[in-house]
Write a protein that binds this DNA or RNA. Sequence first.
DNA 1: CTGAAAGCGCTAACAC
DNA 2: GTGTTAGCGCTTTCAG
Lengths: 331, 331
Amino acid sequence: MDVARAAEVHASTASRALNPETRGVVSDETVARVLQVAKELGYRPHPLARGLRTARSLTVGIVVPDLENPLFPPLVRGAEAALGEQGYTLLIGNTDNDAERTRTVVATLAERRVDGLILATTELGGETVAIARDLGIEVVLVNRETSDGSASAIVGDDHLGIGLAIDHLVGLGHTRIGHVAGPARLSTGVGRAVAFRDHLARHGLVADGMVETADWFQVEPGLQAAATLIERVPELTAIVAANDLLAIGALRALREAGLRVPDDVSLTGYNDMPFVDVLQPPLTTVSVPYREMGRLAAQMLLRRLQGQDGEAETVRLPPTLSVRASTAAPR
Amino acid sequence: MDVARAAEVHASTASRALNPETRGVVSDETVARVLQVAKELGYRPHPLARGLRTARSLTVGIVVPDLENPLFPPLVRGAEAALGEQGYTLLIGNTDNDAERTRTVVATLAERRVDGLILATTELGGETVAIARDLGIEVVLVNRETSDGSASAIVGDDHLGIGLAIDHLVGLGHTRIGHVAGPARLSTGVGRAVAFRDHLARHGLVADGMVETADWFQVEPGLQAAATLIERVPELTAIVAANDLLAIGALRALREAGLRVPDDVSLTGYNDMPFVDVLQPPLTTVSVPYREMGRLAAQMLLRRLQGQDGEAETVRLPPTLSVRASTAAPR
DNA sequence: CTGAAAGCGCTAACAC
DNA sequence: GTGTTAGCGCTTTCAG
């Protein structure tokens, strides 16, 4: 260590002076000299060497199924910002929704000795979580949770979000409200469908026969499901879609059926994806604070890494409703 | 190294057997035994230790201005895929378009000893490139280039892309074509405006007075610029927007002016952002292969890291035209 | 073809 | 408060 030589101290003393944690042990004078010299020499610590010694890489991995799905970038961005503040760097892995790739990606990140892992993958048993745990890697889930709640998670409060949409529609006077649900194998699909039924019941409305399930969170399945729904229940005046892509599909189905939005049928989405505000009509949708979720997930992970392990906790962030022009009072 | 012990060879022999590059030096029999044992023991090499010794981290950083801009995720994803295939991992840094943050992010990644850097930041002198070079880090630019062409870059061929849009419109019979240009301080803004003039000239059409510049690649500035343009040139029958957001703004401006798309005025965008195909009308736009660009940037970087430095080269990828319903023959 | 020895840059345990 | 010593896990000379 050339800094040590230049400051005329031993390498270990220099190391202690450079590290805020151990700095207290060194005399103020020495600390000052070392820092001074380090600055002059433009000293940059070598994280690989440090990591080799301390078994901590100051590195966190984030695993997403599909970065091109507009839901994930804000998550990644929020996490990156929070981690950067604490001197951590973010490694990214994309799994293409493939279980096999998920395993490889997690294995790669584990091999890289990430200190922690933020998992945003969708269809994933507790399996991956267990693997990570075995390797001694802290895990925080984001936008999903394990069924047994054994892992810490940051999720949006879907029950509340669907409630916002329904309250809004009921407030406008709608009583025949349908739901284009997401796939039953995804927790978001099921959860929102359950919430839909709960909230209708709360308002004394019937949900039977008002739900049609799309088998994928995509435009085309949304179109299909919505078409089936409006054919079966022609008297409905509003549709709550389980996400924005399904809503876009529903919008098309309605248009193809000769129905106008919102004049004939009101429509709501979920997620507030970029540019749903420029659709025709601009979509009323539930806005989920994804960036904040990424941020919180990172912070929770860091807290756990800094020792305060404690119980696994699940934070459920409240969404808000972005009211736009796709909803109106029924005729 | 427990693998070595179990295989009853020296650690260095095991190391040689495990490394494909040096494997030839070891007897086939020994190689087989070591690989066998390594497999049984589930041996995973420790990249930090290796990196410490070899001064290579098998890590690449990507710097983007704003991951939430839909242009960047495909870039990152393409890069991640290509790097993963070669055993490299991707570190991500977001700069919020801030020069100061760009410096810190690059510094952090450099400190992490990334082997190479993919830079997708927009407004950036050769400064960052120079810094990285000084630190001995290979750099490849993506979606931008330095003015002097000193750094390797993968970019879209904007001149060709604008040509596709104009040829399409001219082919439909349009002769009075306007341009909503992007900001003059961005290379994409200027480049596309120049291309617009070139291609009109090629078709013997006049560009004078047909260009209006938006001062930001956003919906609102697009609306303003388009409004000004159609007021000044009411006889125009088509607008080429310099990007999709500007096109969405133009769509609104046209609608507000009581003009229908494509009946009264045809409209084209640029980038083929997610969901412009679900606009009303679906937008005809120039589709840029961003994922492919990310992929190529990563591959070019890897090639340079593997020694074949050579000259800096700029690859200009041809875009394609996605013809949708926002363009039609003039009345 | 294989073993021995050294060292990448840093930090932790142990002296003094 | 500071120096000494050792070692993280791996690769790379250098011998033999």
